[in-house]
């Protein structure tokens, strides 16, 4: 899922400094699962904005709402129920949600309430770790299912850099060297020789280096 984290309150207060009626809008998708922008977090941020406004001695009305998702036009349409009741939206969805509101509502002021961090999963309670960088050309079949693009500090494609110590990455000593993990895993699966195959130089265009990306499915488009 997409992992996000609430922005510092002072940054959000700065964004909404001139708004008097604010809609804090959560998303029940990924950000709800990673406890960054679901209904509970909307309640907390709305409270903090009210308190921040009270402290500044400013009047403010802060509404709370949440959508099933903010990355689909049909759900964005349901913002209509708050029509005329807000000057600005603070979206607690990932950046996709904020973009969708901005795309579809030309006259609506929308601010991001969270920092969209990465694609990852829960490593332990309260900790999330990056697993995939959305590179557009997945090579996990060569690496035992472990991603060197997202999980190697140097995104190396042909084995470790040689700097790891005790299985930890030389760049981040608390992170396992993913190439050590790949090696150990391939050995366990009796596929160690896969590591001898040389990965060709990569074309990074599908990873976003060639501008904004799009997936188009003819079978699904009308």
């Amino acid at each position: 899922m997409i992992i996000a984290e609430r922005k510092p309150v002072e940054e959000i207060m700065h964004m909404v400094s001139s708004a008097e009626r604010i809609l804090v809008l959560g998303c029940r998708g990924c950000v709800s699962v990673c406890s960054a922008g679901g209904e509970r977090e909307v309640e907390i941020l709305a409270s903090l904005i009210r308190l921040g406004k009270q402290k500044e001695g400013k009047k403010a009305e802060v509404l709370e709402g949440s959508l099933v998702r903010q990355c689909d036009k049909e759900y964005i349409d349901s913002i209509d129920i708050w029509e005329g009741k807000y000057d600005a939206i603070v979206s607690m969805a990932c950046g996709v949600g904020v973009n969708f509101i901005a795309n579809l509502r030309p006259a609506t002021v929308v601010y991001p309430g969270v920092n969209t961090s990465f694609f990852g999963g829960s490593a332990e309670q309260g900790v999330w770790a990056e697993q995939c960088a959305g590179c557009g050309n997945c090579i996990l079949h060569h690496t035992g299912g472990l991603c060197p693009v997202a999980r190697c500090a140097k995104s190396l494609m042909n084995g470790p850099c040689g700097g790891s110590q005790d299985g930890k990455c030389e760049i981040h000593s608390e992170v396992p060297c993913v190439w050590q993990l790949i090696h150990d895993r391939l050995a366990r699966l009796d596929r160690k020789k896969d590591m001898l195959e040389v990965a060709p130089i990569r074309d990074w265009r599908p990873a976003g280096h060639g501008g904004p990306r799009k997936v188009k499915r003819d079978d699904l488009s009308v």
């Binding site: 509970r40 309640e43 907390i44 409270s47 903090l48 009210r50 308190l51 009270q54």
Partner: peptide, 11 residues
């Protein structure tokens, strides 16, 4: 006790 309960007390 939820964060929101405690914030409400301040509100």
């Amino acid at each position: 006790v939820q964060v929101s309960n405690l914030l409400k007390a301040f509100e």
